[in-house]
């Protein structure tokens, strides 16, 4: 296995989490979670529904104002979040949504470039609800990338898309990440999505990270590759899902 993330030098660390606790009322959702993410590393986070993935992501994003908790948490100021819904302001045009909070002509130019990168050139003046779900999510991607984040947090960003659009979005995300090299934490339900995108896969269960698996397959990754299938089986069993192969065994 690759060196344990805690062995990474702090200089190349983007995220540094130690002993993170988060609780809602009497229920502990995150229990002593440790995690380091290196610069430019793509990490996927799997876990059953309700296991606390979103809670973890919100903690990293600094969005959990009223949540009880302790622990060390270092994340860059310059981070972007992509939500499951595109979360575009319906009363702002596409370009205005991308450049929200940015100043001046430089911001406009960067916004236009980011839109072109996600393949939405010429749609600058459209209203968000004139776009399809996939296009809206691409605008959301452009909005996060235009800020050149050193950390990209994504909470099931493709969860609401159809399978075909999702595959296209994987290619797009891979390409964008290769170009901009942010560190990524991608929360997803989709094991295949995690395997085909991530350098490392974590599984969260009962408040702990119970799996920390480095994926060394070459990219782009072939879903038919036996190694791919082996990793999938391993992860599914970690998630408590019996696969047909195992049942037969």
């Amino acid at each position: 296995m690759a060196p344990h993330p805690s062995q990474l030098k702090s200089a190349s660390r983007t995220v540094h989490v130690r002993n993170l606790m988060r609780r809602f009322a009497a229920k502990t959702i995150l229990n002593r979670v440790d995690l380091d993410i290196a610069e430019g590393e793509f990490v996927a986070l799997l876990g059953r529904s309700g296991s606390g993935k979103s809670t973890f992501l919100k903690a990293l994003a600094g969005l959990d104002h009223d949540v009880e908790g302790t622990g060390t948490l270092e994340a860059p100021e310059n981070l972007s979040v992509v939500f499951q819904d595109a979360r575009l302001l319906p009363w702002r045009t596409v370009i205005q949504n991308v450049t929200l909070g940015l100043q001046g002509a430089a911001g406009q130019e960067a916004g236009r470039k980011a839109l072109a990168e996600v393949g939405l050139e010429g749609r600058e003046a459209a209203w968000p609800n004139q776009l399809s779900g996939g296009e809206q999510q691409r605008v959301a991607l452009a909005r996060s990338l235009v800020r050149q984040p050193s950390l990209l947090l994504a909470d099931e960003p493709f969860g609401a898309l159809d399978a075909l659009t999702r595959l296209k979005m994987h290619d797009l995300l891979r390409e964008l990440c290769a170009r901009h090299r942010p560190a990524v934490l991608l929360v997803t339900h989709d094991v295949d999505e995690a395997i085909s995108l991530a350098d490392r896969i974590l599984v969260l269960d009962d408040g702990h990270l119970i799996e920390n698996l480095r994926i060394d397959l070459p990219t782009p990754r072939d879903h038919g590759d036996p190694r791919f299938a082996k990793i999938r089986t391993q992860l599914l069993s970690r998630l408590g899902v019996e696969t047909p192969g195992r049942r037969a065994a």
Binding site: Q96, G101, R143
Partner: peptide, 17 residues
Amino acid sequence: ELAETLRMSQKDFIFQV
């Protein structure tokens, strides 16, 4: 939440959102 993650200023938040 969005405005917070975009680190919008109070003024931008009021006038844009």
